[in-house]
Structure formats: structure tokens, C-alpha cells
Design a binder for these strands. Structure first.
Lengths: 235, 235
DNA sequence: TAGTGGTCTAGACCACGGT
DNA sequence: CCGTGGTCTAGACCACTAG
């Protein structure tokens, strides 16, 4: 099924929360009300709410209802969400290197798939800012096999993930992260406006996608002095 | 319901994986087979498999089946799982400070609940090792309200979370993490066998539990030189 | 007691993978 | 083609919260 109903319900509620139409601490409509509103069964509504719960948007209270959680101010980078969606409206992005053909970076911490190593590699690098302060350098490598015409392409709404989805019909299906404390090189330090000797949080990500030929390798260098990286998990 | 069926299914499969009875890359029984084996419906089996997927134990392939994933070698600390379960059989734990009455630590990065601040605080500190190498210092603070007789108590199977569950019937229901790169103090550095000037990964955790009176605040200082901290997420 | 979320049943149809 | 997982329906009963 291309457009599952639970995605519609999920997007509807997530949108309401992100626009502030339901205030923090406010209750969502009950599951039964949502069922009526969307003409679906509770199974479908609950699947959507489970996603929202997993992503930290809501909390559930047995016997009371589902409430909007206070959104963390830190960067929610440890999910499959992209940066912009995770951080919100105060995020800015600047290309340091537009997509080019390159070698597989020696900085990649995850093991690169054998099938990728033998292929042409596409690389791009971006600087992420919050409120105009640089907080993260993001370096990305991926095989060019599945991405015909990717070089010189404008990103859909400035988002790499949206481009993958809208242009190539490729969805992110999973991610693995490794986290380390370390130091960045001089160039990255300078871009992040970090003094020498200040450690950075380094996150190595391996994204799997709905296209078996496409795996994305990212190395993130985060200045955590003002904005720690956040993650939450509820059951 | 005290003992949901999906927990039984989940524990059964997780146990098989952890004991190696299904090798890495091997397929689980199909959902329909599991239904027959446990006399439950697919809804229930899928709820269990969803948990295993979320925790990174398995991966699903549409049209083929569910396969056991290679367990990450890094520390899976970013879930509600405890250290021992996350790391496995090579983990050791040493008390640096057995549970005592203390002040709320000034090192706590999360905001401490107002209701906690006015209460007696219990503190304990442990050193975590993997293959006899120190990798993490874990400092824990919590209100003593819900934990009658906790001081001087032996931990069930050496596990704090198991003690909470078995003795106090309290379950972990969620966690929020903040991650930073930074430095540890001299004492922690010495316990971690870290040279001065080597950065550590600092993880601030706030655990919520099934008892509204109990919130647990932890500060982890990780030496990531050999063992990075890992996390994975699949949809 | 009424309303909420938590669990579960017994089906159904669809999309994908491999034969 | 069949078996797999993905989505969905239309119910049911339970446990928790609050008036």
C-alpha cells in the first residue's frame, strides 16, 4: 500500500503539534475520537500514536489520554529524522561542498559495504546552524548507483531526505549510530567556530534505505557546548 | 493485564537470539508459525516483533521473513535497557559508592523535578568495565521516597533495574538523553584510566518509571576510545 | 460509573520475493 | 504461484483515572 492510513493520521497530528495547535501539556483527541474523525479503526490510530510516542512527541497516560510532550531543545539527531525536522524552525543549512564525485572518505567509522566500495562515490558536506550559530558539520558519502542525475540537483525544499523521497522514491528505513568524544580537524573547528582543544561529539551514522543499492554514510561533528544532542525513548 | 502474551513471545525469541539458538543472519519462524506455536493472533506476534525490531535484534524483509541482525559491538546505552543487558556477557560492574543519602548532584544536567528537590536523595556510583577495561563511570541520583529500605540492599543479580522490578515492582517507562563531548574530573579520569586532555562522552539520562514518585537521574562518563556508544533504529 | 488507553481475537486484502 | 510480511477492519474485554 502506497499511502497507509496511519501515516495520514500521524502526519495530521504531528503537524498540529508542530504548528502549536495543541499546546504542550494539552491532550490529543481520544483514540476513539480520532477513529471517528478519520473513519479508521483503533488499530490504525494506535499505530500512528505509537510512532508519535517513539519519536517523543507525546506521552500516554493510561485512563487519561495522550498528551503533547515538551519538545526537547537539544538536537534530536539519533533517529531517522533529518536535521531540519529534528531541530525545527530555527535551523539553517549551508553547503560547504555541493555533491561531487569523490573517494570513500577515510573518516567513515562504519564499515562500508563491499558492494559500495567498488562504486563511484558521491560526497557532500554541509554546515548546520541553529539561530545562526554553527553547531554541526555533516559529511555524507553514498554510492551514486541509485542516484542518476544527483549531481547539480537542487534539493527539494533544501532537504536531502525529501529529495530522496520525492525524486527517487527512496525512503530511509533505518539507521545505526556510533558516538564518540574527540577532536575535529582545523578546518572543521574553524567552520564550527571552535577553539583548539575543545572536544566535539562525533556521530557516525549508517542509513539504510528502501533501495538495497543505497546506503548512506554520515559523519557528524557537533559542538555540544550550547546545544547537546538529545534522544528520548518511551514504552 | 499483568502478563501480556506479546511479552511472552518477545522474551522467548529474544532469549533464543541471546543464547545463539538462532544464528546471526538466520531467519525467525514466520509470523504465522509463531501464531500457531503460541496460539495467538498475528497482531500479538507482530507487537512482539516490533519491539525486537526497535531494539535492533532483528530486521524484517518484506516477502522474505525476519532475520537476526548482527549485534553491535558498541555499547547500546541509548535505550531503556540496562548496561549489562546492552553490553552482554563481557560486562563487569564495580561499586565506587554504594547507595547513600546525599545531596542532589550539581553535575546533573537535566532539570530535577520540583517534587524531587525537596526530598531526600539517594546516590550511588559504579564503574563499568568491558573485558576488564574500564569504559564508563555511572553516577545515579534519585528520590528515596519510593524506595523503602533501598540502602544496604543487595541488588538482584547485580542489576539496579532488576531490583526495581523484582523488589519494588517499578518498571522503567522511558528515558531522555542529552549527549555532550567534554572532560571528566581527575577522579573519574583516574578510574577510567584516561590521560588528562582526552575527552569523554558525557550522557545525561533522565529515566521515568511506572511510579510517578520515582525519577532517576544518571550522568555517564564514557571513554569512547575503544568502545563507542551505539544506537540503532529501524522502521 | 463513564471514558480512557492496553491487549487481543479472527478474520481480510495487499505488496513483495522467489519458484 | 505460494508464502512472506504490511495494513486494516470490527469487534471484545481489561485496567486505570476521575467525578
Amino acid at each position: 500500500m502506497k499511502n497507509p492510513k496511519y501515516i495520514k493520521v500521524l502526519d495530521f497530528i504531528k503537524n498540529k503539534i508542530q504548528l502549536g495547535e495543541i499546546e504542550v501539556g494539552g491532550y490529543l483527541p481520544s483514540e476513539n475520537e480520532l477513529c471517528l474523525h478519520f473513519s479508521v479503526t483503533r488499530t490504525t490510530v494506535r499505530k500512528a500514536l505509537d510512532e508519535l510516542l517513539k519519536e517523543g512527541f507525546i506521552e500516554k497516560q493510561h485512563g487519561k489520554g495522550s498528551r503533547v510532550r515538551e519538545r526537547r531543545k537539544s538536537l534530536g539527531l539519533l533517529t531517522v529524522k533529518g536535521f531540519s525536522e529534528a531541530v525545527g524552525e530555527n535551523a539553517q543549512t549551508v553547503f560547504i561542498q555541493k555533491p561531487v564525485v569523490s573517494d570513500w572518505g577515510i573518516e567513515i567509522n562504519h564499515e562500508v559495504n563491499e558492494s559500495d566500495k567498488s562504486c563511484q562515490c558521491i560526497y557532500f558536506e554541509r554546515l548546520r546552524k541553529v539561530n545562526d550559530e554553527p553547531v554541526m558539520i555533516e559529511k555524507n558519502w553514498m554510492s551514486g548507483k541509485a542516484l542518476e542525475g544527483f549531481l547539480n540537483m537542487e534539493f527539494t525544499e533544501g532537504s536531502f531526505f525529501k529529495t530522496l523521497s520525492r525524486v527517487y522514491r527512496i525512503e530511509i528505513t533505518g539507521s545505526e549510530h556510533e558516538l564518540r568524544a574527540g577532536f575535529a580537524n582545523a578546518k572543521t573547528n574553524s567552520l564550527l567556530n571552535i577553539k583548539k582543544g575543545i572536544p566535539v561529539l562525533r556521530i557516525s551514522v549508517k542509513f539504510t534505505t528502501s533501495n538495497p543499492q543505497l546506503t548512506i554514510y554520515s559523519e557528524l561533528f557537533c559542538n555540544t557546548e550550547k546545544y547537546p544532542v538529545g534522544n528520548s525513548y518511551f514504552i
